[in-house]
Design a protein around this nucleic acid. Sequence first.
DNA 1: TCTTTCTGGTCAAAGGTCGG
DNA 2: CCCGACCTTTGACCAGAAAG
Lengths: 388, 388
Amino acid sequence: MEMGYSDSGGQLEQAPGPGSPVEVKPEKGIIGNCLICGEPSTGKHYGIVACLGCKTFFRRAVVQRQDTVCKLETPCEPKLMARKACRACRYRRCLECGMSKEALQPRRDLIGCRRIRNRPNWAVPPPNVMTEEVSKNALLSLIERLTSCDERIRNKKFEILRSKQEALGLANAIKEGICKPNVDHHSKLMIMLASDISNTTQTDLLTLLEWIKTLPVFKLISQKDKELLLKRFAWNHLIIECGTFTAAANVDDVWLISNGTCMPRNVEKLPEESKVAAPLRQLKLMPQELVALRIIMLMNCGGTPEYSGLEEQTHKVTLAFRDKVIAALFAHYEHIEYPNFPERFGSVILMTSGITSAASAMLESYQVMRLFKIVSFDLISQQLLFNG
Amino acid sequence: MEMGYSDSGGQLEQAPGPGSPVEVKPEKGIIGNCLICGEPSTGKHYGIVACLGCKTFFRRAVVQRQDTVCKLETPCEPKLMARKACRACRYRRCLECGMSKEALQPRRDLIGCRRIRNRPNWAVPPPNVMTEEVSKNALLSLIERLTSCDERIRNKKFEILRSKQEALGLANAIKEGICKPNVDHHSKLMIMLASDISNTTQTDLLTLLEWIKTLPVFKLISQKDKELLLKRFAWNHLIIECGTFTAAANVDDVWLISNGTCMPRNVEKLPEESKVAAPLRQLKLMPQELVALRIIMLMNCGGTPEYSGLEEQTHKVTLAFRDKVIAALFAHYEHIEYPNFPERFGSVILMTSGITSAASAMLESYQVMRLFKIVSFDLISQQLLFNG
DNA sequence: TCTTTCTGGTCAAAGGTCGG
DNA sequence: CCCGACCTTTGACCAGAAAG
């Protein structure tokens, strides 16, 4: 905010006009931008980098619990304008960004509430609650860790791809119709896409390899089973990546691959896989859901070891991890007080079937392109995708 | 905000009326005179010392800018009587005195602060424990009702089929190897199965029709959409029915159809659809989960009406019912204190993808049998399964 | 002990409300 | 309608407590 008149009461206070020199901020102490609303922030509050406004807002919201539900039918979108959203949604965003209620202390001026060294006695937890609290926290930090890994790697991927093209710029161009598929330059588009497809596919797969290395369970799995799981997941990975990218670009009726080019398989009919983008866009998967969905699909290896073709050990370990991630996602839902999260979770999981069928459609169309030498794939793609 | 009246409404400590004994008050809080109109002021507003009236006037003038020009030939003289001047001139005086438009903040949310007219009972009738309890019970009875309907109809189906064969008896026979498929009587088996397949398929589909009639939402859906949903679900229905039956029979390595005969598509390789039985057996779906799974798959119609091909109304209604059933299943889990039910629910939902792919495999193999006239299907099967 | 970092509290000054 | 007294909400600043 650009006020701050309060202190200046004594001084001459030269009414800060439009072009006032006062706003020359030497950014004293600014350590970054508020995760919640984007304003400059001078420090961390309740666990995350946040501005003073969001800090105070959060404290008040927790202390005097009120307005817990948004009164709009379509909840406000606090992501870009947290400070203008309604209180319920702003509070929800605080939680989503990771502010922790546990960091709130009881009233300061009550005697006996001081922390003794290293031991917050203001949260003297009964032993049973303690363990439950601990496991909740462990789950929360698990999902946070997984999410940040996933985002870090994905950002890196876009960094790599940007060296070739400005992804969003091209996406916008498409939106404005420059690249809109039509009969006239259909074949031209395909030629243009040939290199794009093999390029982004390779980048996506390398990203996949890098990502699974960050999953601790994968260290417990034999090389053979690793390959099996990877091959099983690779197409789904491509669909999820392209799907979220397409959904984020918010364009209709085209299917974007990660560098922003569009891929119409034919003119009159959109490819099957573009259908998955609509649910993705509508659900607006939060990062935690996205990573959970990916892990669930990667680790979903049927009912029994015999049928999944995996070793007993692998089977047990992956299923256990999958269950843990599901539990972690639920802990996250509860933490951010997401309303009706069972239904939400159901919708998220149900995306798997759409993704699977989109993946087979993609396999089919890529297979054709490969056989007819329209696109040539590198070694890693051959191995992971075409059973090469 | 709907609270905060307590202090003002409780004791009317302020509002000193004209005849109040404290009329000569030193006016606590008065810090000077309004620069604009000369009235006493309690603080600074928009950069200058101003009274409440000028403050609110200025905000409104900026927000809804109107009356920007004075209608008098000789402009009013707002210096001495700002409050009596026309709006244009009063606004001009505000600016001349140094009020700054930049001090205006973006609109706050209207929703969170709106009060209904006439000062509602600020003990807002809350969603208290009672209603929550009621809705829990409503959900529990919903899932119970659905479950018993489902079971009743399925029992009836077996009753019908028993008139032909003793289903479980034959299943046992298979377990003991009498009917185990091998090369020698492969063709004999197929011939035997031809009538079985068409027969049980028909029975299963009639059962399906009877079942969906028990779902109240289906009354709200147009005939066209009903057919669409049914056709979409029919194969999945067959898989679920056969799958649970096979799983219950607890035999390995065969795929049973509902009358207890086994259906090996070829000898050396088991049909794709038999893979779904293993997860079903391992999960041991409880009846509530089974019916919830069926409804979820029946009502799962993608993200948007455009993509699902359904009418807007249908789309909304089915999704709402699906969500309600999910909530009901969760209520059931909580009711029976099932441990780790989120993971359990995840596993149940994840069966959808196995069922879907088994369904396409089944479609393929039945299609072959139909084309080569190995099996002839009745009218209803033709319509629901083969787009006839 | 001194500094850093984060806590809760404060209050001037925003915005909204609803009889007049 | 507009006006403005009155109310709630906001956030920059402050002092104090833990941690280093």
